[in-house]
Amino acid sequence: HNLTITQGKLFFHYNPKLCLSEIHKMEEVSGTKGRQERNDIALKTNGDQASCENELLKFSYIRTSFDKILLRWEPYWPPDFRDLLGFMLFYKEAPYQNVTEFDGQDACGSNSWTVVDIDPPLRSNDPKSQNHPGWLMRGLKPWTQYAIFVKTLVTFSDERRTYGAKSDIIYVQTDATNPSVPLDPISVSNSSSQIILKWKPPSDPNGNITHYLVFWERQAEDSELFELDYCLKGLKLPSRTWSPPFESEDSQKHNQSEYEDSAGECCSCPKTDSQILKELEESSFRKTFEDYLHNVVFVPRKTSSGTGAEDPRPSRKRRSLGDVGNVTVAVPTVAAFPNTSSTSVPTSPEEHRPFEKVVNKESLVISGLRHFTGYRIELQACNQDTPEERCSVAAYVSARTMPEAKADDIVGPVTHEIFENNVVHLMWQEPKEPNGLIVLYEVSYRRYGDEELHLCVSRKHFALERGCRLRGLSPGNYSVRIRATSLAGNGSWTEPTYFYVTDYLDVPSNIA
């Protein structure tokens, strides 16, 4: 807008934040220059609390790290170098490059900038070799853009010569660093050979998330399962459950009422301010606690030095998902009996873990797994792929695949051998790939016309006998059925096997 004052003059007093240069501009645009008398524009009460600059400061050096910015700028000295009290560095987070010096300023003089007072450097006698002032900004957020400017702080001049310097606002972004852990990993099994893994992005990506790394490792069953005799009275049979499938998407929606109208769909109840505040506090606490764990609990591995020492970490090797089922080394339970199943799973520490690289999504279907087997899954978020990966501390989750139908069934015939004193040795093959492992066998036998009897055969007993022995049988026709019990439950009964026990007292003698 054009402003013209045809008559009258300007009068400025007691404006401590208004620089004289701005008042002189007002004289020019209003056409009143030359009308004012000496005392109409006070030299001592206008701009006496402001830094009124008329020179431009330029930054000469900028260096960044993930949490620091090192700045240096060209030296500046007023005509009387004693008038320079120091520099004021202003900075704040700036997602967009549209910041002005006066953003967030209120009537009390406060604003949204963080201000650092910096002492002037030592003055050199040689004007050509003056030290460049600077400042190291610490405690910054990774991968965050900051708006920065600097200006001088000078003393009051009796001659009211307006001098000083100020830089333009520059924008500097800190470097990326390792992201925080992925949030809320959930693993479920939808079949006997697959596990579905879902997660949420890290709360602090500290860069642009480029991919996720998912490692999985087959877990050995508890050692007590191999040692305890679950045929003993009072000892509860062990059981394991597989990871249940995901709930429906509708039930997972946030901010939804727990109660549904019987007449149909209901609208979600909005969260109160107290609920939102509580969630923010919980989120802040979780982030602080995660940072504490990362800094205190997890110790970084030592990389190899120039002395030739090897990095103890196993090298990563990509495998196809079809090879995942046989990740671990199978060892027989008892070496003397080769027909026992290889369900003991000690994992070799030198073995390469299978892994998958996930790009542009937060889910993965891990296939080719062994049925009813526990897996430990390790999830890392990465925001750099080359020249070397920059990934987060791992988040861990466990899951067990679903049982395989008929995996616990005894394959092959049940054979028998009759000894003296009416002892019958029953023999059968253990299931080759049971659900988890076989903890015991149930032997059901009966003599024709009598009630059915049951015998429990422990895992250890089966390994020693290759089956079991029935003792003290009365003469007669017998039928026997056997079924295995694994961590997933009972298998199917075998087809009945028949044998006849004679009275050993009636056996004919070869003595003449």
Rank of each mutant, 00 (worst) to 15 (best):
T494E: 01
K233P: 11
V345Q: 11
A399K: 03
E442P: 01
V414S: 03
D311M: 05
D291K: 01
L228P: 14
C266Q: 15
D408G: 03
F419T: 11
R240E: 02
T497S: 06
G264C: 03
K361D: 04
S363P: 11
D385A: 09
A381C: 01
N383I: 07
C456W: 00
G472R: 07
L369Q: 04
G322N: 09
D222T: 09
K302R: 07
T272R: 04
Y448L: 07
R319Y: 05
R447L: 13
H294G: 04
T272H: 11
P312F: 07
S486T: 10
E310W: 15
Q380A: 07
Q256P: 12
P314K: 11
D204S: 06
P338M: 11
R466S: 07
P338H: 09
K361E: 09
E465Q: 15
C269Q: 02
A405L: 12
I438Q: 03
T241V: 15
D503H: 03
K233R: 10
S203A: 10
L225W: 11
P434S: 09
D506L: 05
N421F: 02
V214W: 01
C269Y: 03
T210P: 06
T333A: 13
F215W: 04
K302V: 09
S239D: 12
E281M: 15
S492M: 12
F298T: 01
E217L: 02
S398L: 05
P300M: 07
W242P: 14
I377G: 13
R353Y: 04
E430R: 01
V439C: 12
V297M: 09
V297F: 09
E249L: 15
L235Y: 07
C231K: 01
A330D: 11
E260W: 03
S284E: 14
K406Q: 10
T307S: 10
M402C: 11
R286G: 03
N339G: 07
Y504A: 03
F246H: 15
T288C: 15
Y478L: 01
S315P: 10
V327C: 03
R446P: 00
R469Y: 07
V334E: 07
A330K: 15
Y500E: 15
E430L: 03
V414A: 07
N326R: 12
V329P: 11
E227M: 12
P434M: 08
C266V: 08
N421R: 12
F246W: 09
T288L: 12
P245V: 12
Y445N: 02
Y212A: 07
T241D: 09
K460P: 13
Q252V: 11
N360G: 06
A394H: 09
H294L: 15
K432L: 09
F246A: 06
R376M: 07
E281D: 11
E451F: 14
C231T: 01
